[in-house]
Design a protein around this nucleic acid. Sequence first.
DNA 1: TTGAAAGCGCTAACAT
DNA 2: ATGTTAGCGCTTTCAA
Lengths: 333, 333
Amino acid sequence: MSRKKVTIRDIARESGVSVATVSRYLNKNSYTSPETEKKIQKVMERFQYTPNAIARGLAKQKSNTIAFVTPDITNPFFPELVNSIEKVAKAKGYSLLLINTNEQELQNLDFWNHFQSKYIDGFIMAESELNEKARRYLDEMEIPFVRIDRAVHPEHSNSVHVDNFEGARLAVRHLLEIGCKKVAHISGPNSLYPAQERLMGYQNVISNTKMTSIVLEGDFTLESGTAQTEKLLQEHPDVDGIFYANDLMAIGALKAFRAHQKSVPEDIAIMGFDGIRLTEIVHPEISTIKQPIDKIGETATNQLIHFIENPDEVCGENVLLKVELVERESTRR
Amino acid sequence: MSRKKVTIRDIARESGVSVATVSRYLNKNSYTSPETEKKIQKVMERFQYTPNAIARGLAKQKSNTIAFVTPDITNPFFPELVNSIEKVAKAKGYSLLLINTNEQELQNLDFWNHFQSKYIDGFIMAESELNEKARRYLDEMEIPFVRIDRAVHPEHSNSVHVDNFEGARLAVRHLLEIGCKKVAHISGPNSLYPAQERLMGYQNVISNTKMTSIVLEGDFTLESGTAQTEKLLQEHPDVDGIFYANDLMAIGALKAFRAHQKSVPEDIAIMGFDGIRLTEIVHPEISTIKQPIDKIGETATNQLIHFIENPDEVCGENVLLKVELVERESTRR
DNA sequence: TTGAAAGCGCTAACAT
DNA sequence: ATGTTAGCGCTTTCAA
């Protein structure tokens, strides 16, 4: 038996109906009599028919593909996130395209033209920012997207967002509860909104104590965790609790503590933020504020697909998810 | 200004030529006079024309997308790999689809029908195995693919493969050189060819000494690293060197050593395999046999695209890449 | 409820 | 060197 690809026309001919009827059956959007449905169904099975997605895409101007756009997929947040995004997408009949591109290029209208030329139905972005021009262009082209993680910004809607402020408060209060007397914060880049929120959470709690606020700005990388901790230990050798704006920096800090013979949690207790798996792998295991990563991916994807399929519902909401304190060795006294 | 999408017909009309000429210009596969080229070029720029990828796909039966197929993208190997795959793919005009699916489903012909219905041009797989039926089907459909990492198997060609045997030998010899007297191996699953090769490398070196071979089978997970190390310490408390078939298990082992108050490298020296970034993050930093991850991704992608674009060259080669010893704290005496 | 036919936007013979 | 035209496989009016 030759593997000639079977088309809708073959199915139509073989079932004795027109292609239009077969198409209707396929799309279940118009009535078809039960009998013809049965017939078509049978024939499709016999021929192992699978409608051609590309042809469909061309006719409907829709690819049933969404994209995940990021400048750096080695961000440790990424794999789990993609997992849940892909899961939901697949369940709803969408494929996931991975697009690795820098912030620069996202401002380029050509980039979006190519994007549209594939009829990509929408995308999720986790890190970059779009300038005014790009946003307007996307708007004209009616390509929906949702922001998560570092891409969240209060000026823009359509995002899935976690409670960074409350999370930071949880973290700092936890440090106070276990008896820390001098608590510092290594923040994320000030330009990022989630980093600002975490900083504000820290300050909010500290301002209700007699402590003074000690903040150094990091950049969310492992290396900056090590470096800023070094600096902090230099300037304030008596710090006994540190809240890091993300887990990676907290993990990087461990190297600095080792160099300074400080033991965690005995000399200094530390908290991270994110809940990446790495926190359980290092020693000591790091206490953290855990984000519901799967839920973020799921919610974002559901929301995106909702927009795609209901373009009329103009304005998207912002979802806010809860975070949770996870206590581990780094704060166990 | 309305954003009506501009098509090849608009460009043709506006440049005073036929669509065929524009198409030729686009595909640069037939001659067009320099003058008309200039004209067309101008018009395209003026209209910001981007050819519709879906329409092209339908006509050429080709989507210019490749897929990365894996059952578990949280495999720590993944992000860096995808990075290099995507980079090469993009440079050659291909997009990357991420497909998360279990081994089970890969045997399902419907899965491949859907795959084909999108005109996916080829794929890379890193972990699963395909049964005879699926392989034949792919063959009939002429969907090329290449195997890397755990999916490599000596019975199949078209793979990019590292020198596991030699790598294992390097690792074990290194342990001997730093003075280990009793060296054990925690292997990967026996069912996986790369794991077998690493095991053979271990045995090869050990057989040239007066030592006896001590091997426990792990499964490449962090947890199994901890568990098998526990077991090993129970059975052979005097082991003073361990070669782990991958980094993750070596990292998991650290927990076991801590529990048994064994210090690394003083009491026991350990080596991993892979060269994932994590080995530099934990303490002590783990010596390892580093695979050229980027190169694997690049080579695999280049090879895949080569097959896609030269379907005539029937039989694919197997590329073998070198590995490299990286000495870190875990073997520094 | 079903069919005929005109697209969707591009490619690739075949002509000229 | 360029134009005509018939697809690629499916969807969607419009009629019946």
